[in-house]
């Protein structure tokens, strides 16, 4: 088993599995975010955020999520460095004109680095304020959860205020597109890496992967954009 993780396929297995895990997280994240679009002043979203923050299951998953990110990033860099070495220092003077290869598949590291930069900003915007430093906007509000009035953190206010800034929205839209590109290769690729693919399933997984990637990518972008356009004031 230990030698498994040292082998090329084993390292890629870690990339694939962590990728699949992160993709599941993204789907849940997007579902919760979609509540931001309910025009009730953020009550539903705040209730959902409260549920997520107090759920013991999430408390277990959160460190796992962090590990998922770290593994995916560290191994991604490690593998790319190895691949550069394997490629050798010489480059083709006539370039690479192979047709039918997606741009995303050739640039996963660049997309990954972009997403990482965004992630830092994203964590600073929300997670740091909600979990560590606090923010006046987060002051408790009362919402009805299953008919019971409950005091919850006003996460909606923080988000709404953040998305009032045009530059933030632009960054989020760009990151959403980057995410879609990253996932458009990553989705299918994860299945290929764990061995779940053949000539038939490859076509299905590629289509499914593209639908998923753009749904998630555009979904996040759109929420930020709509918040800026229709949910201010």
């Amino acid at each position: 088993m230990s030698s498994l993780l040292c082998s090329s396929i084993g390292k890629k297995l870690l990339m694939g599995l962590s990728g699949l895990f992160l993709m599941m997280f993204l789907l849940i994240h997007l579902t919760v975010n979609s509540l931001l679009l309910i025009p009730d002043g953020g009550d539903t979203f705040n209730a959902a955020a409260h549920f997520m923050a107090t759920n013991p299951f999430i408390a277990v998953v959160e460190p796992l999520l962090a590990i998922g990110f770290i593994v995916h990033i560290v191994w991604g860099i490690l593998l790319t460095l190895q691949n550069r070495k394997a490629r050798g220092s010489a480059r083709y003077a006539s370039g690479n004109k192979t047709k039918g290869v997606t741009w995303a598949s050739q640039n996963m590291l660049i997309l990954g680095i972009t997403l990482f930069a965004f992630l830092v900003l994203h964590v600073a915007h929300f997670w740091v304020k909600m979990k560590l430093t606090g923010d006046p906007l987060l002051n408790d509000v009362t919402v009805n959860i299953a008919g019971v009035p409950t005091e919850v953190e006003n996460a909606y206010a923080l988000i709404n205020a953040t998305f009032a800034e045009l530059w933030v929205v632009i960054v989020y839209v760009v990151a959403g597109i980057g995410l879609a590109l990253h996932l458009s290769h990553g989705f299918w690729s994860s299945f290929q890496t764990i061995g779940f693919s053949n000539d038939i399933w490859r076509k299905r997984l590629t289509i499914l992967g593209n639908v998923y990637a753009w749904f998630v990518g555009i979904g996040f972008s759109l929420i930020a954009l709509l918040q800026y356009l229709f949910f201010q004031g």
């Binding site: 090329s8 390292k11 190895q82 490629r87 192979t98 290869v101 598949s105 690729s189």
Partner: peptide, 14 residues
């Protein structure tokens, strides 16, 4: 010392 496959599919095309 060969590299790790990242499933770009360039090999298959060429």
């Amino acid at each position: 010392g060969f590299g790790n496959c990242t499933n770009t599919g360039a090999c298959e095309v060429e």
